[in-house]
Design a protein around this nucleic acid. Sequence first.
DNA 1: AAAATGTATGTAAACGTTTACGGAACTTTT
DNA 2: AAAAGTTCCGTAAACGTTTACATACATTTT
Lengths: 335, 335
Amino acid sequence: MPQVSIKDIARMLNISVATVSRALHNRYDVKPETKQKVLELAERLNYRPSSHAIGLLKKRTHTIGLVVPEIDNQFFSEIINGLENVAYQQGYNVMIFQSQNIYEREVKIIDQLIGARVDGIAISIGSSTLDFKHLNMLKDLDIPLAMFDRANDQVYGHKIINDNFEGGYKAGEFLIKSGRKRIAHIAGPSTLKLTRLRMQGFKAALRDAQMELRPEYLVHTTFRMEDSHQTALDLLHLPEPPDAIFAVSDYVALGVLKAARELNLHVPNDLALIGFTNLAVGPLLEPPLTTISQQSYEMGEETARILLENIESPDKDFKLQTRIFKPELVIRNSV
Amino acid sequence: MPQVSIKDIARMLNISVATVSRALHNRYDVKPETKQKVLELAERLNYRPSSHAIGLLKKRTHTIGLVVPEIDNQFFSEIINGLENVAYQQGYNVMIFQSQNIYEREVKIIDQLIGARVDGIAISIGSSTLDFKHLNMLKDLDIPLAMFDRANDQVYGHKIINDNFEGGYKAGEFLIKSGRKRIAHIAGPSTLKLTRLRMQGFKAALRDAQMELRPEYLVHTTFRMEDSHQTALDLLHLPEPPDAIFAVSDYVALGVLKAARELNLHVPNDLALIGFTNLAVGPLLEPPLTTISQQSYEMGEETARILLENIESPDKDFKLQTRIFKPELVIRNSV
DNA sequence: AAAATGTATGTAAACGTTTACGGAACTTTT
DNA sequence: AAAAGTTCCGTAAACGTTTACATACATTTT
């Protein structure tokens, strides 16, 4: 016997659907005897209310949509955890989607979330996204939007981000203080603002120390380890290779570490290395990775809080919020 | 202007909803002029069809539910990727949920998925789940179920698993061949069948080599690194500590590695270590981790394939499938 | 000119649920 | 005994969409 509806139960007991509904909701105005019969039958037939029917009837779905570039990245999965926990505590469900940094997928996901009538959307924008119509139309549709980690100024929505400039500055500063002279930076996709800010902060640190950045010491890569590995190899094969590298993320730093090992370079003696993110595996690497920490779990929590506050606010003109997390230097042994 | 429906568009253009619906679906029997007007207005108002309305009307939702114990675990996130890719290719959506190994959450998630009328469910059962009513009722409801990695014999559903006995055997065998004498095993939660099988395989390898397993060398832990770290410390503090450890998973091995480093034990000289899973970080550790590989991505793909085949099969009595992946020894430097 | 065909649109039911409203059958109050 | 109040339940509309069927008008065929 496949899924039953309230109608089936009503028919079987020779009562109306209204009574069944009332019985299931334990309303006062239904005879205990009837209530009993309904509950028993519902239990026996494994009745579960159709969320579609309910979603159609009520305006609210108590669901928020979450879009991340990729799920197999600890940074994002920790954000998911933080966000989910807060959402669950407030009785909301979370629908998780990954864009794989593919623009078309991102657009499709947003369309789906609108179709699913979610109460709000949290997103970390994919690196290939250059057009933001799909996100800005959410304002017209009265769907609150929160951007975490990867936000864009052209988009109307809350922002939960890091002070990436400061993080970049701290990374550069630390490498300089440790006495390195030939400092390189492996930056992320240039489309992302966080990439540009980390780079700018890094450059500012060099400038403040009256050091110049050689053009060949600034290269771009994606956040995938395979790419950064190749990029690092290229960098280390320069006629005059760097003696320190600031990697735009820990994942990228992993690629550098692999390259250094292949070239028999000792870290930190031959090459100092600093990452960004503070992944859980960092301390377990050899050497343990020095990095700039991002509080991923807390960012997820804060994203949920702001988004839910917006959703539950009766105020139509809930004003946009920006929350900036301060990055911290985590000193281990790779510098 | 909030979300518009087909009714709103019909009212605005003074035509019926049927015509609007036909226009949006590009049916043959609607005047090009009308079609044009409808499409333009729909575009301008950012119309997106309500998935609730459609889900209610049609029996099929083209959605499959995916339940994993935890998302911030590369093994599972790779499975998610494999499963999602196959599902997308066949025009299905995936709703992802994590149980956090909490039984109550798992039950709630299943209830929700039934309510959402998903076409099928893929699950890796949580370690605290001892009662399977919530899963077995899916059979009555005609909802196909596929269990990956963590399956249970009491549950009616497809199984996509590893030959964990063989994996355990291979791990034990390799440690024995490398000349270790005091071999310990850090097993997972004893509720999980995969834990028991890996343990049994490991024991069988010892038996076949006429070696005995000291009781104090067999301990249990969870898959969280913090727990395994403490367990490893206890093990290494024994009066006669082991000279080799087979960890039930790479995550657990990470905990062991951390403990070994704290105690200044050199791996593999003082302690040989072998894991299970073959996580992407394995080769980047120092020393690179020897492990038993599970083909997570492929398991995800296979899970989707079997589940979708079941869903799309007109045959009501689609027979249960079991797919067993063969684990492979991946030799690096930790043994 | 009648009949047949084609074209474009409308009507209405269905999916599953909630809920305002109404009413029947009692019971209690006057 | 009439009035008023309870208690329990049914009716029907609404949410957004699709689709079988009906219909109106225009055009073509006989």
